[in-house]
Structure formats: structure tokens, C-alpha cells
């Protein structure tokens, strides 16, 4: 694909970050729902499937989180862990954005011939 050679891995990476943000937001939203099982993805697996099969393949990489402590109500959301993951993911999203912006700036400068 032409777009892939232009932006490299960053297009797929942005998609994975964006979908992971939704996943972590769902975990945080259900922090006090009895029986809710928290989910997350392994970035490498998710990136590989999104790169290979498109954005919808993200769902295949989703896995249940293994809780470090059991709870009485069966909820496996550990808020501190989710908050850390959410903050980390937000920073990574912004990093990917700046990679993309840098690439766009580079191409624009090359096209203008400055």
C-alpha cells in the first residue's frame, strides 16, 4: 500500500493506540460493575494484526487481564493499573502523532523544494 510506505508503521500504531484507549476507558467505566472482566491488548500482537488485516483485526488481539488480586464481586479492574495504562497510552498516542506530524512536515518541505 502506498500509504504504508509514506507513514511507515505509524498509521497502524495510531489505530492501535486509539482502539486501546477505548478499551482502557471501558475498563475504567466499569470499575465498580460486579463481574466485569478487564481487557487489554499486547501491543506487538495488536500492531501485527492491524498492519496485516486492517483496523477491524484489533479485536482478535484483545485478551482478558489477569488480576493480581481476586475480588469478592468478580470484578477484575484494578484502578491504579488501568489509570497507569491509560496515561501511558495517551503519551504513546501523542508520540505517534508527533512522528506522523514530523513525516508530514518532511514530505511537505520536500514537495515545496525549500
Amino acid at each position: 500500500m502506498a500509504a504504508e510506505s509514506l507513514f511507515g508503521v505509524h498509521g497502524a500504531a495510531l489505530e492501535v493506540r486509539s482502539q486501546r484507549m477505548g478499551l482502557l476507558a471501558s475498563n475504567i467505566a466499569n470499575a465498580s460493575t460486579p463481574g466485569f472482566k478487564a481487557k487489554d491488548v499486547d501491543f506487538r500482537t495488536a500492531l501485527a494484526s492491524v498492519e496485516g488485516q486492517g483496523a477491524d483485526a484489533f479485536a482478535k488481539a484483545v485478551q482478558f487481564r489477569v488480576p493480581s488480586q481476586p475480588t469478592m464481586d468478580g470484578n477484575t479492574v484494578e484502578l491504579n493499573q488501568e489509570q497507569t495504562a491509560f496515561a501511558e497510552n495517551a503519551v504513546q498516542y501523542q508520540t505517534t502523532l508527533s512522528f506522523l506530524n514530523g513525516r508530514i512536515g518532511q514530505i511537505t518541505r520536500a514537495l515545496k523544494g525549500e
Binding site: 470499575a31 465498580s32 501523542q94
Partner: peptide, 28 residues
């Protein structure tokens, strides 16, 4: 206390998501 904390967490999520979407719109 737990309700207030969970509510604040969700506000935080919404603010972060909004900021990232605004940043994405400014891409390029």
C-alpha cells in the same frame, strides 16, 4: 468516596480523549 473517585476518573478519561482527538485533528 468511591463514587466520587470513579466519577473523577471518568472525567479524566473524557478530557484526555478530547485532547487527543483535538490534537489528531490538527495533524499536518
Amino acid at each position: 468516596m468511591e463514587t466520587a473517585r470513579t466519577y473523577q476518573n471518568n472525567v479524566e478519561v473524557m478530557q484526555t480523549a478530547k485532547q487527543l482527538i483535538v490534537d489528531t485533528l490538527k495533524m499536518g
